[in-house]
């Protein structure tokens, strides 16, 4: 039977290490803020759109990008620097490393997105219909997409640039099929089908419900989908990393 206290401590210490080494870097913070911001401006400028209606989608995109941006690189970096074996030899388990990576990504995503939400509230007087739902969306969305980042770091690659390519290949298309640039309520049947396959759709819908009160799906459904997807990401990451370890470090 695993000692829960030791396990929790190992998760928090892996999180601390990740924050110190991989997230507290100017370039990472700037990239985390700038990339989604520029993406949004590219779409928004020159079109006669209501910023209040589109802001929840922007928040969803911020949270998605910031939570999943650095996670894919951590394990490949550690394998390349040969610190992965040092980490594994400390009082940790594979599960605590995976959860530590997810917590670090989540924290980063939550901080960045909160800054953007505060900025939005001050500058454009963003409404807030359901504060509780906003908190749930923030926490759950951060955890889901940090788990996606950790899953993307799991294949046996030690070259961060290869990982980044695969990561962007998966993350970028998700933005276009998640009701970010076109509201879910304006989508046709087949487009609706497509968007329902993306977990980001449900996060954007939660933000829509929390901020504007105009969600398409019931909040409960969004939450259940995100929880299931998160569990699948974590389980897949664990199985892949376990398989890789069985083949050596």
């Amino acid at each position: 039977m695993m000692d829960f206290r030791l396990f929790t401590r190992s998760v928090l210490l892996v999180t601390e290490k990740n924050m110190r080494i991989y997230y507290y870097k100017g370039a990472v913070v700037i990239f985390g803020l700038l990339f989604p911001f520029i993406m949004f401006l590219t779409f928004f400028i020159g079109r006669n759109l209501d910023i209040i209606i589109f802001f929840p989608a922007f928040l969803g995109m911020m949270l998605f990008f910031s939570s999943s941006s650095t996670g894919p690189l951590i394990t490949p970096w550690e394998k390349r620097e040969k610190t992965y074996e040092r980490l594994l030899s400390l009082p940790v388990t594979l599960e605590s490393i995976i959860l530590g990576d997810i917590f670090a990504g989540s924290l980063f995503g939550i901080v960045i997105t909160t800054i953007v939400w505060i900025g939005g509230s001050l500058l454009i007087h963003l409404p807030l219909k359901n504060p509780g739902l906003l908190v749930i969306a923030l926490l759950l969305g951060a955890f889901t997409f940090a788990a996606l980042g950790t899953l993307l770091s799991s294949p046996a690659m030690s070259n961060p640039s290869n990982v980044m390519m695969v990561s962007n290949l998966i993350r970028l298309p998700l933005i276009f099929i998640s009701g970010i640039f076109i509201p879910l309520s304006q989508l046709g049947d087949w487009e609706w089908m497509l968007t329902s396959l993306s977990p980001l759709t449900y996060l954007v819908d939660l933000f829509n419900g929390a901020i504007n009160g105009n969600a398409v799906y019931p909040a409960g459904l969004d939450i259940i989908v995100l929880v299931i997807v998160t569990l699948l990401f974590i389980l897949s990451a664990k199985l892949i990393q376990q398989y890789n370890l069985s083949k050596g470090i």
Partner: peptide, 12 residues
């Protein structure tokens, strides 16, 4: 444990 290559975190 001192693993092979004795690596530590270079950024700390």
């Amino acid at each position: 444990i001192i693993p092979e290559n004795g690596t530590v975190y270079s950024d700390l």
